[in-house]
Design a protein around this nucleic acid. Structure first.
Length: 554
RNA sequence: GGCCCGUUGGUCAAGCGGUUAAGACAUCGCCCUUUCACGGCGGAGACAUGGGUUCGAUUCCCGUACGGGUCACCA
């Protein structure tokens, strides 16, 4: 009786690993090409951290003419949710993070290194597990969860390191005969890795992001094949990333402390280990404590949140890139219109510690992104958003020709407005441009400086006589100045400031009055453009309406 | 608790033994301007802490404090 017999008993009728080694040859890629992946579990919505990882992995692969693939890690069937894979694919797609290989739907995939869904690779893992058993590098363990639990409490009481190692690794010491006997007797078991490591020895590891890190060797005999026959993360990682040719494992830094184990696994399996790049998580300040963005507590942890709020995917990406490489901002300033694809991301420039998520900064980035959009783009995206989340806005935008004019105010020039950070801001910004909405607005408003209603009325009715729709901007503004002068307001603000006592106020006061009559707002974009878009009839209507209102109040 | 990692203004961060310690967001003031936004100028604001090493430490070493990660038949 030897390891081979044991292996055959546990995994009869299973292919030899040479089959898989041949089936998945090494990738033929240009020098320096990096193969990356994103490997989420289909357990619910896509986390902003996964997107962050995916975005970085995608960019690094693209930059080096490598490959980026999506692998679904569904080895924990208890946590799996329905359509989890679809959700992941769509989540990434929204941000244009498109894998070269991997799952494309719940059941379909592209690429030659599949299946890209771990539950479909069961045979592959078992083949490699068998290989380890044959070599005496893995063994069946018959300990029950209860026994393990008991062991753990003992260890904790004795204040020693918990785990399945050394003298605690009971089943490791079983002879092959005993193992075979137990299996034949129908005892339940799982497969453990026989760790060659010693805790008192150190290993040196260079992480692409974290730099040099020293660890004690791993000496835990971790489970590699679970009771359901599926592998644990560690084992699947080693097998998959070897077979799929991953050169750089970019993942969250919660994995950093598993590196000794992973390196050992690669070593014992006879694989070349990939490079590791452990990304710091995106954090949130929670009452003075830093913690990871949490699925449960933080809505902004879900990538779907941004679509719901109407924050453009590009803005989120730019913000994430900002966190990833802080020189991105400088690059962006120097390359205002360049695609982010031409920014060269560098892994080793990534922060070693986790950044706090800053919504205000994101919104600022988003304002810049939207400011560069054409009216047409703003229209399309805002409309798409509105159809889903704000029917009232969608309704307003139905008149495309008019809406384009509204959205085009002060847009596309050298100093575009920066007043929209997200599509949910749009309505508030433009409602008053829509007559039916404007008419229904019964909000109270102040007349500001010119608070004498009688005077306001006179100024407005004078202005309306002067106003000609076809006036160019200078003429238009001169007329406002004329009205101002007529009623004792300075034509120029400067004149007023030099001699405040000589005037009741200045042009600004008059234009503010007109602005209020037209929009019920004190702050709006350029009024000349607003009036052009509203049209003569509407302008006259609004102004005379305010006059009537004044009369009523008198 | 053991083992890892980290700590530069409110936030994101440059910095690699000698700097007036960049920049961005936020904030404040001024200018520009018919309002707002844009733009311009300026202000306030930081090297966690104690020891070393050194002619000199934000930079190197050790301790302390604080923060984060990890110790599953979850990933």
């Amino acid at each position: 009786m030897n390891y081979k017999d044991l292996a055959d008993l546990i995994f009869p009728n299973i292919k030899d690993i040479s089959y898989y080694e041949e089936k998945y040859p090494r990738r033929n890629l240009p020098e320096g090409a990096i193969v990356t992946r994103v490997a989420p579990s289909p357990t619910g919505f896509v986390h902003i951290g996964s997107l962050y990882q995916g975005l970085i992995a995608r960019k690094i692969a693209s930059q080096t003419k490598g490959v980026f693939f999506l692998r679904i890690e569904d080895t924990d069937q208890k946590r799996e949710i329905e359509n989890g894979t679809t959700e992941i694919i769509n989540g990434f797609k929204q941000f244009d993070v498109i894998p070269d290989e991997g799952m494309t739907s719940e059941t379909e995939e592209v690429g030659k290194y599949g299946p890209y869904k771990q539950s479909l690779r069961k045979d592959i893992y078992q083949s490699y597990a068998k290989y380890l058993i044959e070599q005496g590098k893995a063994y069946p363990c018959f300990c029950t969860p209860e026994e393990l639990e008991e062991m753990r409490t003992k260890q904790e009481e004795a204040k020693i390191r918990p785990g399945y190692y050394g003298v605690w690794a009971k089943c490791r010491k079983l002879s092959v005969e005993e193992m075979i006997e137990k299996i034949k007797a129908g005892e339940k078991y799982i497969i453990r890795f026989k760790s060659p490591g010693r805790e008192d020895r150190k290993i040196k590891h260079h992480d692409v992001i974290k730099g040099n890190v020293d660890f004690p060797e791993n000496d835990q005999d971790i489970v590699i094949i679970k009771a359901d026959g599926l592998p644990t993360y560690h084992f699947a990682h080693a097998v998959d990333d070897h077979l799929m040719g991953t050169t750089h494992v970019i993942r969250g830094d919660e994995w950093l402390s598993s590196v000794p184990l992973h390196l050992q696994l690669f070593q014992e399996l006879g694989f070349k280990a990939p490079k590791y790049a452990h990304i710091s998580p995106i954090m949130k300040n929670d009452n003075g404590n830093k913690r990871k963005l949490s699925k449960r507590k933080d809505p902004e942890a879900a990538v779907s949140y941004y679509a719901e709020e109407g924050i453009p995917a590009n803005a989120v990406k730019e913000y994430l890139l900002n966190i990833a490489n802080s020189n991105f901002e400088n690059w962006r300033r120097a390359n205002k219109d360049a695609s982010i694809d031409s920014f060269e991301l560098q892994l080793n420039k990534m922060s070693v510690s986790g950044a706090l998520f800053d919504m205000i900064k994101l919104l600022d980035v988003s304002k810049n992104v939207i400011a560069k959009y054409t009216a047409e783009q703003v229209y399309e995206e805002a409309y798409k958003w509105a159809e889903k989340y704000d029917m009232e806005l969608a309704d307003m935008l139905k008149d495309k020709e008019y809406s384009l004019k509204v959205l085009g105010i002060e847009r596309g020039n050298v100093k575009p407005r920066r007043d929209i950070a997200k599509w949910s801001d749009v309505k508030e910004n433009i409602v008053y441009m829509y007559p039916e909405k404007f008419d229904k607005n019964t909000e109270e408003y102040e007349l500001q400086t010119i608070s004498n209603v009688e005077e306001a009325k006179q100024i407005l009715s004078t202005y309306i006589q002067y106003y000609k729709e076809e006036d160019d901007k200078d003429t238009w503004f001169n007329k406002i100045k004329d009205v101002a002068e007529k009623y004792g307001y300075a034509r120029e603000v400067k004149e007023y400031k030099q001699n405040p006592d000589a005037y009741k106020g200045h042009v600004g006061d008059v234009s503010t009055l007109i602005r209020i009559a037209l929009t019920k707002r004190t702050n709006t974009p350029d009024m000349y453009e607003i009036m052009k878009v509203l049209g003569k009839e509407e302008v006259e209507k609004r102004i005379s309406k305010l006059c009537n209102l004044c009369e009523k109040e008198d």
